[in-house]
Write a protein that binds this DNA or RNA. Sequence first.
RNA 1: GGGCAGUUACCAGAGUGGCCAAAUGGGGCGGACUGUAAAUCCGCUGUCUUUCGACUUCGGUGGUUCGAAUCCACCACUGCCCA
Length: 425
Amino acid sequence: MNLIKELNWRGMLQDIMPGTEDQLNKEMTTAYVGFDPTADSLHIGSLVPILLLVHLQKAGHKPIALVGGATGMVGDPSGKSEERNMLSEEELNKNIIGVRSQLEKFLNFDASLPNAAELTNNYDWFKGISFLDFIRDAGKHITVNYMMAKDSVKKRLEGDSGMSFTEFTYQLVQGYDFYWLYKNKNCKLQMGGSDQWGNIVTGTELIRRKTGGEAFAFTCPLIKKADGGKFGKTEKGNIWLDANKTTPYQFYQFWLNASDSDAATWIKIFTFLQETEINSLIANHDANPADRILQKKLAEELTRFVHGDAELEKAKETTEKLFSNAKASVDSLSVEDLESIEGIVKTNYSADKINAGVDILSFLAENSIFESKGAARKMLQNGGVSINREKITDLQMMVEKNNLLHNKFILIQVGKKNNFLITVA
RNA sequence: GGGCAGUUACCAGAGUGGCCAAAUGGGGCGGACUGUAAAUCCGCUGUCUUUCGACUUCGGUGGUUCGAAUCCACCACUGCCCA
């Protein structure tokens, strides 16, 4: 199956420029995706563009991952209703390093391959270009009328927050990237999220006008939740690919919590499973949705892809301990079980205080489970806190020695899904 | 440089002298129901606090007043229009 057909059945194609498929069938094609260094780690929103590159490489083409050191300084207005904050240079550099190291895990950079992946940073070429050079070499070829017709620009002009010249220029800067890669690396294809379509087309246009050459593009749909909510956000913020920011257990849980309809869409997009296997998984899932076959498979495949087998196993173990017997008494958890739980928030607490007895509110606040006693009280009153799997409603409760599991642990749940393990020593 | 409009909590957006910690909607969190789902219903959503209460908020600073998100002055920022 060729790349385009593959991406198409997976639901990963949104717009495609005519001739792209022919180009890919004709020869090994170099293609790129740009990543914004807005943080020092990528989050799962970047996973789809990464997967585009992986699929591309699997199909025998050459992927380039571009880290936007220069474009990050400008700020992409696409999808933003307001001017973005600018990042300082140190921040940007730190972020670029973080993002690079993550991309390296997903693509094959083995230089002996004809289609070895490459990493570039557009700051490398932009730093040598003066403003005057740029407006003569790039700006001359694109009319303002053309740039204003772009959706990302139009929306901002119609809105009431305006748009700075800097942001307006963004599409031209990104367009120049494509031109530069086309000229210097024979890169003929750009991919990205569908919000990038306008920027990408500016690039192909610039290439056509400056060189007379032809360049191609396609985009993938932006991932949304079926209920319209933002993808990849939880109460704790983004789901990051960095295990230090989002533990593999939390990562696994995120996918496990997908709704049925999302799971069916996402499993095609985020895993490399074949069509027949996916169809049978969906059929099995529909037969008995409560088993959440799709969610489990999705979570498993992705956690392995991002964090590896060992971390996946630990994430599954922790999930097993915390959820599979959620209604059983805590006694079913052995010392070993508790000691080996990974990925949830753990804190230590002084044994002396427990021996003396602590009131529940202070206890919860002192362990940073809540920011203050007031917050803890509200949650308690709402029935949202369990200690050792027993719902606590008594605000006066004292936490004492007999609350310890195996003489050293206290398991706290806030809501159904937030677990905290406190070790008392 | 000139004219006009605006700046309220996470977002949108009411409030034009006391009953305002500030309507309403969205979002978020928690609960019930479930399948760690969806939909629905209920509660919470400025901070701290032994539910009393205290403190800090309506762009900023100063003023009028017993009392200001609300009135006045100046400043800052944003948008639109004119030059």
